[in-house]
Design a binder for these strands. Structure first.
Length: 564
RNA sequence: GCACUCGUAGCUCAGCUGGAUAGAGCAUCUGAUUGCGGUUCAGAAGGUCGCAGGUUCGAAUCCUGCCGAGUGUACCA
């Protein structure tokens, strides 16, 4: 349920009654526990505007808020802060909702059609560490939007139309009979082709000719090209399955899919006057930007930008998207700013369409340098995943009680979960320092901590057996705050969705787990001396906590286990 | 050169639509606890929020300048 919006609507009601219109219309979370649950700071600013005493205004607002049953306490403090405490009986009454399959979170009234563009591997190459963040963050966002009720279309905009294919085809032709076998290791094949390309200008020229042939629809070239794509996609699918990422063939719509549309995009831009010719190329100029966006090269070829514009057109017109999120590395901010600007100017995306670049920073090693293998090469994503799984095995307690399959599964859930959570728990805009020891750790804000907390609560619930799931008695402040936290899940999810910030969810889960641990430390649940009624009520809190953790982690793409 | 992002505790990070004494975790120190499963608990210490101005009753948060790091910068994706 949305606690915060209840508070906010209570505020709005009071403004209406007092016939005032403050700039700040929303409450924020209290900065300190002794101030209550929420605080409203708008009275000071309004007082200045009206040239009145801030405490007086605050008192007037507070007087009205006091009549609302959701508040237990409304106090004016300091220069004019209004401190709000949610009523325990209200929290208690609402808490059983958090036990349902959606952890009490409602489905949005007005769902939106959202495209999330993420992962985007390059064809004919292995996925590497650079794809990790896009894949993991994009998938979490897609899950989040979906959970809240939006209609989500996952798009994997694969790089399947670059000049590298000319190189690959040329090399394939050159290798003759042997070539077919070599394809099984496409990575090596690519490297060999690249080496040849760099060394021989004659070969390079041939490669360029093949690009032209391919793009003009040569059947032989297309067949080979198709084969390269299929092999790579199989590799990618293996990675997605292992990561538990919800991408499959139906999400794939690569650059090549927009090929036929590129010509139209350019002429549309020219006809509307958005683009014009400069030094032989077709460009879009911007007021403040010195560099134009080039949509057609002097030699007639099209570019990344052109494809992106065609993709926007497709997503708006054919898919009906109202929000399009590009989960792409921060280095491309300028590119997207220009592409979005152009799409808006040219009417490819109307005012009702929201275009967002969900930028993220780089993956660095402990010394702050780009994350590489010891030899200085790029780290293959599949190797990274496998290492995470291997490392996770060390955290399984009583390993001899499990079958080898169970061990594999637990290690996968923990290892992959840790890999994802480490990425998702920090603000995506910063660079991300990759550290095995930090991510696979029981201490701190890690997947393991969350998964362990879940397993432990689960164990309490199992030992407790059946119990009645009714309104809990909130016997102390710890229980009241824990319950309120559980009910705040929806507020957090909505904020994370609006800002496309998965780390807000992780931060919430960590706080929730921390609060539960504190509660559990102080308030015994299963001990014999606990009265039945209290035991019952604490079990309800435990169950609701576990449910919120499970729901939150699932949105982040992380599984939980009943036992670790 | 220009543009963008970033600079918060020893480390990793929150906080940034302006609000009360700037918060976590790790590491360090002191005490309690052998407890419902290993994430214990309480407390201490740790900060000129890069620097300097400005706006404001109030600035880590907004504005300007500077310093430092990173990234991008006309036909790659």
């Amino acid at each position: 349920m949305q606690i915060k919006s209840l508070v906010n609507s209570a505020l709005l009601e009071s403004f209406k009654k007092l016939n005032i219109s403050p700039k700040v219309t929303e409450a924020s979370e209290a900065t300190k526990p002794e101030f209550g649950d929420f605080q409203y700071n708008g009275a000071m600013a309004l007082a200045k505007e009206l040239k009145k005493n801030p405490r007086e205004i605050a008192a007037e607002i507070a007087e009205i808020l006091k009549q609302n049953e959701i508040f237990e306490k409304v106090e004016v403090a300091g220069p004019g802060f209004i401190n709000l405490t949610i009523s325990s009986s209200f929290i208690s009454k609402k808490l059983p909702e958090a036990l349902n399959s959606r952890a009490g979170v409602l489905v949005k009234d007005e769902p939106v059609k959202v495209v999330v563009d993420y992962s985007s591997p390059n064809m004919a190459k292995q996925m590497h560490v650079g794809h990790l963040r896009s894949t993991v963050i994009g998938d979490a966002l897609a899950n989040l939007f979906e959970f809240l009720g939006d209609e989500v279309i996952r798009q994997n905009h694969i790089g399947d139309w670059g000049t590298q294919f000319g190189m690959l085809i040329a090399y394939f032709e050159e290798q003759g009979e042997e070539a077919g076998k070599q394809l099984s290791d496409l990575e090596e094949f690519y490297k060999a082709a690249k080496k040849r390309f760099d060394q021989s200008s004659e070969f390079a020229n041939r490669a360029r000719e093949y690009v032209v042939k391919l793009q003009s629809g040569d059947k032989g070239c297309l067949k080979l090209w198709r084969e390269f794509i299929d092999i790579t996609l199989e590799h990618c699918q293996e990675v997605y399955d292992k990561l538990g990422v919800n991408l499959d063939k139906s999400c794939v719509r690569g650059e090549s899919a927009y090929n036929d549309e590129l010509k139209n995009i350019v002429s549309q831009l020219q006809q509307s006057g958005v683009a014009k010719e400069s030094q032989g190329a077709v460009c879009v100029f911007f007021e403040n930007s010195e560099n134009p966006l080039i949509v057609q090269k002097a030699d007639g070829g099209y570019l990344y930008a052109t494809t992106d514009l065609a993709a926007i057109k497709f997503r708006v017109e054919k898919l009906g998207a109202k929000r399009i999120c590009y989960v792409v590395d921060a280095r491309q901010s300028e590119h997207f700013r220009q592409v979005f600007d152009t799409a808006k100017k040219a009417g490819i995306a109307g005012d009702d369409v929201q275009l967002e670049h969900i930028a993220f920073g780089m993956v660095l090693d402990k010394s702050g340098k780009p994350f590489k293998t010891r030899e200085g090469g790029t780290v293959k994503l599949i190797d990274l995943i496998n290492e995470a799984i291997e490392r996770a095995k060390g955290f399984i307690k009583n390993a001899d009680e499990y079958t080898p399959e169970e061990i594999e599964n637990i290690a996968r859930v923990v290892g992959v979960g840790s890999l994802k959570y480490a990425d998702l728990s920090i603000n995506r805009t910063s660079n991300y320092i990759f550290d095995w020891d930090k991510m696979l750790n029981l201490d701190g804000n890690t997947a393991l901590y969350m998964q362990y907390a879940y397993a432990r609560i689960n164990s309490i619930l199992n030992r407790a057996g059946e119990f009645e799931q009714r309104e809990p008695i909130l016997s102390d402040e710890l229980e009241r705050r824990l319950a309120l936290k559980i009910l705040s899940l929806e507020d957090v999810l909505l904020k994370a969705s609006k800002e496309a910030m998965p780390h807000l969810i992780a931060a919430y889960l960590y706080e929730l787990a921390g609060m539960f641990m504190k509660f559990y430390e102080n308030n015994p649940v299963l001990r014999d001396d606990v009265p039945q009624e209290i035991k019952q009520s604490r079990l309800v809190l435990a169950k609701a906590t576990a449910n919120a953790i499970k729901t939150g982690l699932k949105i982040l793409g992380i599984e939980v286990l009943d036992r670790i």
